[in-house]
């Protein structure tokens, strides 16, 4: 997968490039809007990470020009302002998602993958990770032939983790996808839910699948 990052902050651009390369992406970097637009129009990128505040030509205009040129390359906007206007403006302007600075890198990675996957056909109704099987149609979870009883929320959480097996998902992303809300307080809603899920999915079995990545979030994978 080939990404283009349009970001004028050198340090930000550098760690984004490094982080994304280490996650298997090919990465181009442009340091201003004009250069970014030029590269976006020239190259065949799978996704563009576009900062809104750019010298010469801001992100809004880059996006506008890009869409005017009938390029449908997915765009993920990075904004410094958490304004509702910015969100609406971005999504109406043809952006596929947006992130507000400061953001967690794991968050960005997860969102990039979600956007990239969106372009691909719908995922299979049955997901398997190691000996854990989840059937979305019958809403049934099985591990080593044993049926696991899950509440609706637990099912949604497990499905999210399994679809993104091997990817670290941040608490913010999880709460947004599973509960459709952001928690203000240092609420432990996500922790409690993960703990309960572990009791059902991991505790009765030998090898745990759900792992905590300190400071980043949770990942489901066979280790």
């Amino acid at each position: 997968m080939h990404l283009l990052i349009v970001e004028d902050e050198t340090k930000t651009a550098a760690y984004l490039r490094r982080g994304l390369q280490e996650n298997g992406f090919r990465v181009d970097v442009a340091a201003n809007g004009i250069d970014g637009l030029h590269r976006a129009l020239e190259g065949a990128h799978d996704l563009i990470v576009l900062d809104v505040m750019l010298p010469h030509l801001d992100g809004w205009h880059v996006l506008q020009e890009l869409r005017a040129a009938e390029r449908t390359t997915p765009v993920l906007l990075l904004t410094a302002r958490d304004g509702v206007d910015d969100r609406v403006k971005g999504l109406e302007g043809g952006a596929d998602d947006y992130l507000v600075k400061p953001f967690a890198f794991s968050e960005l990675l997860a969102r990039i993958r979600v956007v990239l996957r969106r372009a691909q056909p719908q995922s299979e109704p049955v997901v398997t990770v190691a000996d854990l099987v989840l059937d979305v149609l019958t809403r049934r979870a099985m591990r080593q032939e044993a049926r696991i009883d899950l509440t609706a929320r637990e099912f949604a959480l497990l499905w999210l983790l399994m679809r993104h097996a091997g990817e670290v998902l941040s608490r913010t992303l999880i709460s947004e996808k599973v509960w459709d809300m952001n928690f203000d307080g240092d609420s432990n809603v996500v922790e409690v839910a993960i703990r309960r899920l572990r009791r059902k999915v991991d505790a009765p079995f030998d090898a745990p699948l759900i792992h905590t990545v300190r400071g980043m979030g949770y990942v489901l994978e066979a280790r």
Binding site: R81, D82, P102, A104, D184, R214
Partner: peptide
């Protein structure tokens, strides 16, 4: 150390996030 740092950064990010909300 880095993980601990990350937790502090997240704390800062949360403060910024909420202050922005209040300001708005």
């Amino acid at each position: 150390t880095l993980a601990s740092n990350l937790e502090e950064y997240q704390r800062l990010a949360r403060i910024i996030d909420r202050l922005l909300f209040l300001a708005r």
